[in-house]
Amino acid sequence: MGVEASIEVRAAGGDRTAFTALMTATKADLYRFIRRYVGDEAEAHDVLQEAYASAWLAMRRYDSTRPFDVWMRSIALNKCRDWSRRRSVRRVVRGVMGLDAPEATAVGEDAPMPEARLDDQRRAQDLQHALSELPDALKAPLLLATLEGRSHAEVASILGITPKAVETRIARARKKLVDALA
């Protein structure tokens, strides 16, 4: 009686069903990361598709001793960097709150005042713009650690740098954001 191969090993062997299962398991988190990085929903979907297409093409080279989500995060980060280089004009954030958000349909005393919603939207747009202006070397560690909740060691593994470099880059990114938003 043999031991069943892990889903990652099966995917690396060309098993599309196994790869689809891995994709399903990692898609939501990876999309959130990409969305934060590129700042545009439609572009994020495109970058996500590119990341999974590249992963499928490179799957035979996947090192099963490395966590699949970390490997995918590295691929997605490279695709985000490619997107940044290709993009000459960044899109302006169209709005933070869609019509289907609960706040948009709130009425009565619980509804935020229109001025407060506008202020929140402006602050969110300013933050998104400031994030998009950060250099890749600062943006990636900040997003991975702060917004994704990954440890400095995990971020270091994904980016191929030391945990101390991650800490330094996050501190620099935060300072740049504070300066940009001041």
Rank of each mutant, 00 (worst) to 15 (best):
residue 30 L to A: 12
residue 121 Q to M: 15
residue 83 W to K: 10
residue 32 R to I: 03
residue 29 D to P: 01
residue 113 M to V: 05
residue 161 I to W: 05
residue 59 M to C: 12
residue 147 L to K: 02
residue 48 L to C: 13
residue 126 D to A: 15
residue 14 G to A: 11
residue 67 P to L: 00
residue 37 Y to V: 01
residue 140 A to R: 00
residue 147 L to E: 06
residue 57 L to V: 09
residue 149 G to N: 03
residue 160 G to S: 04
residue 161 I to T: 12
residue 177 L to A: 04
residue 164 K to Q: 15
residue 116 A to P: 04
residue 43 E to T: 14
residue 63 D to P: 02
residue 145 A to V: 00
residue 175 K to T: 07
residue 111 A to T: 07
residue 85 R to H: 13
residue 149 G to K: 02
residue 135 P to S: 14
residue 68 F to T: 06
residue 89 V to Q: 15
residue 78 N to S: 09
residue 170 I to K: 04
residue 11 A to M: 03
residue 30 L to K: 06
residue 55 A to W: 12
residue 2 G to A: 11
residue 123 R to S: 15
residue 174 R to M: 09
residue 64 S to P: 11
residue 77 L to D: 03
residue 84 S to I: 02
residue 73 R to H: 00
residue 125 Q to F: 05
residue 136 D to W: 12
residue 117 R to I: 15
residue 61 R to S: 15
residue 1 M to G: 14
residue 62 Y to V: 05
residue 95 G to I: 12
residue 100 D to H: 10
residue 85 R to S: 11
residue 68 F to R: 05
residue 7 I to Y: 03
residue 34 I to T: 08
residue 59 M to V: 10
residue 173 A to V: 06
residue 63 D to N: 07
residue 117 R to H: 10
residue 91 R to H: 10
residue 47 V to E: 11
residue 109 E to N: 06
residue 81 R to P: 02
residue 45 H to A: 13
residue 35 R to N: 10
residue 171 A to G: 01
residue 168 T to R: 14
residue 28 A to R: 11
residue 116 A to L: 15
residue 14 G to N: 11
residue 21 A to M: 07
residue 119 D to K: 12
residue 168 T to C: 09
residue 134 L to K: 01
residue 102 P to E: 13
residue 136 D to N: 13
residue 50 E to G: 13
residue 95 G to Q: 13
residue 87 R to N: 11
residue 162 T to S: 11
residue 46 D to Y: 10
residue 56 W to G: 09
residue 145 A to F: 00
residue 91 R to S: 13
residue 118 L to G: 07
residue 112 P to C: 09
residue 114 P to Y: 07
residue 75 I to W: 04
residue 124 A to M: 09
residue 6 S to R: 04
residue 75 I to D: 06
residue 53 A to R: 09
residue 57 L to N: 14
residue 51 A to S: 15
residue 74 S to H: 04
residue 69 D to V: 01
residue 164 K to G: 15
residue 180 A to P: 04
residue 21 A to W: 02
residue 177 L to Q: 05
residue 29 D to L: 02
residue 107 V to T: 11
residue 136 D to I: 11
residue 128 Q to W: 05
residue 172 R to P: 00
residue 27 K to Y: 00
residue 124 A to Y: 06
residue 100 D to F: 05
residue 45 H to E: 15
residue 91 R to N: 12
residue 119 D to F: 08
residue 43 E to M: 13
residue 169 R to H: 04
residue 49 Q to R: 12
residue 180 A to R: 05
residue 9 V to H: 04
residue 84 S to L: 07
residue 40 D to Y: 11
residue 181 L to W: 03
residue 126 D to S: 15
residue 57 L to H: 13
residue 143 L to D: 08
residue 143 L to G: 12
residue 164 K to P: 08
residue 161 I to Q: 05
residue 140 A to N: 00
residue 112 P to R: 13
residue 2 G to V: 11
residue 84 S to A: 07
residue 17 T to Q: 01
residue 28 A to E: 10
residue 157 S to G: 08
residue 86 R to C: 08
residue 115 E to V: 13
residue 85 R to P: 06
